[in-house]
Design a protein around this nucleic acid. Structure first.
Length: 207
DNA sequence: CACATGATCGCCT
DNA sequence: GGCGATCATGTGG
C-alpha cells in the first residue's frame, strides 16, 4: 500500500489570507541552482477536497541532469517514471523509494532539459510540530503527495502549487546532497541548500 | 551523540 | 534479482 495521501490537518492554510501569489513559469525555467535557492521560503501547497494545506520550504537539493550521476536523468536516462523531469519548468516529479516513501521534485529549465529540485524539508503553519515535514518522505506524507501527483503542472491552477515567499531566509547553508554516496564525484557537489534558522531542516546542518 | 538495522516494493538491468 | 534522492528505532559510548 502506497503512503497516505491525506494531508495533515495541522497544515491547513488559506492562500488568500496569506496574500500569496504563485511562482511563475519563468521562475522555474531558470538555472536549477538559482531555483533551488529561490525556493527557500516559498510555500508548497496542496488542495484536497476543496481545502488548502501548505508549508514553507526550508531545504532543497539541485539535480543537474545527464551529467549528474545522482540524478534519475543521469546519462540521459528516460523511462516512464522519470519522464516528468523532461517536462517544462514548473512541473512536479514524484518518485517512490525504499518501498514506502514518496519524494517530490520541482522540474526546472525548459522542456527537454531534465533537471529538478528535490524538496527536502518544510515548516508547517503556526501550531504544527516543528519536524513534521523534516525530510523528503515526511514532507510528502504530511502534504498527501504521492506518485499519483507526478507530472502535474504547478501552474495549471491544479491541486499542487508553489507560492512565492514573502521573506528570504536570513542565512542560507550549503552542503553536499544527502544519501547519494553512490554517485562518485557528484556526491561531493555542494547542491544542498537550507535555511540555517529553521528547526525543520533534516539531518545535520553542517559540512 | 554516532552509527546500525529493518521495513518494503517499484523500477531498471 | 538488486537496490534505492528514507525513516524510526535500537544499541552502545
Amino acid at each position: 500500500m502506497i503512503a497516505d495521501r491525506v494531508p495533515d490537518p495541522r497544515l491547513r492554510i488559506d492562500p488568500a489570507d496569506l496574500g500569496l501569489a504563485p511562482l511563475s513559469r519563468v521562475f522555474f525555467r531558470r538555472d536549477t541552482i538559482a531555483v533551488a535557492r529561490g525556493l527557500l521560503g516559498a510555500w508548497i501547497s496542496r488542495r484536497w477536497r476543496g481545502r488548502w494545506y501548505g508549508a514553507r520550504i526550508v531545504e532543497t537539493e539541485a539535480y543537474l541532469g545527464p551529467k549528474d550521476r545522482a540524478a534519475h536523468s543521469w546519462n540521459g536516462r528516460r523511462t516512464p517514471r522519470v519522464e516528468p523531469m523532461y517536462a517544462d519548468g514548473g512541473h512536479l516529479y514524484v518518485f517512490f523509494v525504499y518501498g514506502m516513501h514518496s519524494c517530490a521534485n520541482v522540474v526546472t529549465r525548459p522542456a527537454g532539459i531534465a533537471e529538478a529540485v528535490l524538496l527536502r524539508a518544510a515548516e508547517g503553519p503556526d501550531g504544527a510540530p516543528p519536524r513534521l515535514l523534516s525530510g523528503p518522505g515526511k514532507l510528502c506524507a504530511a502534504l498527501g503527495i504521492t506518485t499519483r501527483e507526478s507530472g502535474l503542472d504547478l501552474l495549471s491552477r491544479g491541486p499542487v502549487r508553489v507560492f512565492r515567499r514573502r521573506g528570504r531566509p536570513r542565512a542560507v547553508g550549503v552542503s553536499p546532497r544527502i544519501g547519494v554516496d553512490y554517485a562518485g564525484e557528484a556526491a561531493k557537489w555542494p547542491l544542498r541548500f537550507f535555511d540555517r534558522e529553521s528547526a525543520a531542516v533534516s539531518g545535520g546542518k553542517t559540512r
